[in-house]
């Protein structure tokens, strides 16, 4: 895996203190927002536990870590821009969407049209891990995220979700 390109702020010690000044905090959280999305995109992961000390929130070389309160502020900012959603009531487990669910829905739908899958059925697994999707942005994407995106598409009337045996499938229109 290629090295991740950290922004300069990641090596700026006060970046790991939630700023008291509103203007400064807004700037700070915006950078955290972009950083988190890029980091998760780079690792192709979607789950984030606030209590886990990942390299994202902990810069060991700098001896700084963003405290829990700060992490929550970051996640809430991401939620505000449609790039994260809490998975539990305590808001410690989150799902990160480096593309918003709307964007994923569109990307997957366009792909389905391009590859002539209209009116054909495929499984969620095939979408995220199939040969057909190699090279696509959603290849190897967390299946739960794929499912959520498809649910949006379903609401838009562009697909139908179905269950057969024990795997989830979808038919594109």
């Amino acid at each position: 895996m290629a090295d991740f390109d950290w922004p300069w702020e990641y090596n700026f010690p006060p970046f790991f203190t939630l700023q008291p000044n509103n203007e400064t905090r807004t700037r700070q959280l915006t950078v955290w927002n972009n950083l988190t999305r890029n980091y998760y995109k780079h690792r192709n992961q979607s789950s984030l536990d606030i209590n886990e000390d990942s390299p994202l929130f902990c810069n060991n070389a700098l001896k700084r870590r963003l405290p829990t309160e700060g992490r929550l502020a970051v996640m809430e900012h991401l939620q505000g821009t449609g790039h994260a959603a809490p998975l539990d009531k305590r808001r410690t487990n989150w799902q990160v969407y480096w593309h918003t669910l709307d964007e994923w829905a569109k990307i997957i739908y366009d792909w389905s049209q391009r590859t002539g899958q209209t009116n054909s059925v495929c499984t969620i697994y095939e979408i995220s891990n199939g040969d057909n999707s190699v090279g696509e942005e959603f290849h190897e994407l967390d299946q739960d995220v794929v499912l959520k995106a498809l649910k949006l598409l379903e609401e838009q009337g562009k697909c139908e979700l179905m269950l057969f045996d024990d795997s989830q499938g979808v038919k594109f229109f």
Binding site: F12, P13, P14, F15, F16, T17, Q19, P20, N21, E23, T24, Q28, K63, R64
Partner: peptide, 12 residues
């Protein structure tokens, strides 16, 4: 100065 947005606070 912090109030004017010119400096950041670092409280490890």
């Amino acid at each position: 100065i912090v109030g004017e947005g010119l400096a950041w606070v670092d409280c490890p």
